[in-house]
Write a protein that binds this DNA or RNA. Structure first.
Lengths: 251, 251
DNA sequence: CCAATACAATACCAAAAAAATACCATTTAC
DNA sequence: GTAAATGGTATTTTTTTGGTATTGTATTGG
């Protein structure tokens, strides 16, 4: 959890005359969220702690938080805490340095949307068993989506996650990474394999290109710190419609 | 077995205010494992012993251990003990950048060699003028090579360098970068564009593949810290013979 | 001025997580 | 086989968290 003093400058609250206390508090909190001082999924300090720290009543704190919850910036959990909400994006994690699909689409001014191709619990394919290190009895949750920019199909995303991390695959819109989130954003390593391939007929049809045209295949594996594999994502991008930009430093 | 006092500094647990007890315990244990104070395969002290030593409940110890087991860092054996797990999968070597052609080939045990396709000083093409930011009077050194692994053509590399950085284009036998670094040991930032394409007839012939098969196109621009562009490299890899691995850490 | 409203403080309620207690099951050593 | 040591589990208590009702206080509008 972020320290109170780092997210709430007291002087901003004590400047008087400019309006109600709770409004200033709300603005300060909103600023902390947007600036990243409070990360996604991170817990806000307890209402009582904020109240003590700022020497104001808890109800006042509450009123400020109320409005941010109303706006969808925060989420309350009775008995647990108040947390910074996550944006709607779900299955895919932003590729750290490679620009993400949505980012790039937004930069081009395209609207993005997704169509589900597959979603549910399955017995792992031989491929998945090998990559995820599973035995025969295991289960994986599979999420496949067609991603579109301005209603043109651009990519197919197939994610396989160890079932134990996904209690209910139909709720995934919000909580795929919840198992990891609870542990407060412990680092997860991903390895990406980037390669080119000729698109097979089935995928070509989905993407609306002719069979055999070039596709960019990106495969990502996410590990726990221990090295245990939790997730396997295989994406296929249309070669003619998309490319990736990575910035890196050479020795 | 390691002594309790050597693996668990009590003061770290007794520092109060920063969160739940079991979290601090978990962090301490994880640290002990990663630091090597607890070796692979070694037994963790019994839960009751840890509890007594730290003057906390055994269930609290259990909760901390639970999460490390969940992560795969520890393994429990009912009636026997809890042990430090052996790493599940060998995480591929930490690369903060895309592996280079020669590196990767060497790792696969392939012998590499190159054939020159073009080498010399030229007036810049419109493309190069734009990308390198050149005027009409400038000169560029161009190096085009066919790269082979075990005598199979794998990639075409086309590099354009500002002539001033390459006194004699015929002496560039080894790495371009070593030549550049000698003049300037400072780091160079590069932007890569990665995309897939269908290989055109001329290039297909060089690479020994059929026209239209998938190719991985990587375009790299190298800058000086000042922002000045020094190099432009366009590489075309056979999609069926090569892929790239990048490792990155997600927040 | 007085009523209506918004703001803030106090006190108490309910849900969830954290921690402690007591007891059960499995393995190992003898 | 038995006993000691180990991890496994169910239950309860305590603490922490958000939720709500009530009351007091300032601001505003007629």
């Amino acid at each position: 959890m972020a320290a109170l003093s780092t997210i709430l400058p007291l002087d901003a609250l004590q400047a008087h005359g400019t309006g109600p206390l709770y409004v200033k508090l709300r603005q300060s909190l909103e600023k902390a969220i947007r600036s990243g001082a409070l990360q996604q999924g991170e817990a806000l300090p307890a209402e009582r702690d904020i109240a003590d720290y700022a020497s104001i009543s808890r109800v006042t704190v509450r009123k400020a938080v109320d409005e941010l919850v109303q706006d969808g910036l925060l989420v309350r959990r009775h008995g647990s805490g108040t947390f910074v909400a996550k944006p709607v994006s779900k299955v895919e994690q932003p590729l750290s340095r490679l620009t993400s699909f949505t980012e790039d689409m937004a930069r081009r001014g395209l609207t993005t949307r997704s169509e589900w191709l597959e979603r549910g619990l399955f017995a792992p394919s031989p491929d998945e068993m090998m990559m995820l290190g599973l035995g025969p009895g295991a289960l994986v949750a599979r999420f496949a989506r067609l991603r579109l920019g301005d209603d043109n199909p651009l990519a197919i995303e197939r994610a396989s996650v160890l079932a134990e991390y996904v209690p209910d695959p139909n709720v995934v819109t919000t909580s795929l990474y919840s198992a990891l989130e609870k542990r407060n954003a412990r680092p997860v390593r991903a390895i990406q394999r980037i390669s080119a391939c000729n698109i097979k007929s089935h995928d070509a049809e989905l993407l609306g290109v002719s069979e055999g045209s070039a596709g960019l295949s990106i495969q990502r594996i996410s590990y726990l710190p221990s090295g245990k594999v939790v997730e396997l994502t295989r994406s296929l991008y249309r070669g003619d419609a998309y490319d990736f930009v990575a910035e890196l430093t050479l020795g």
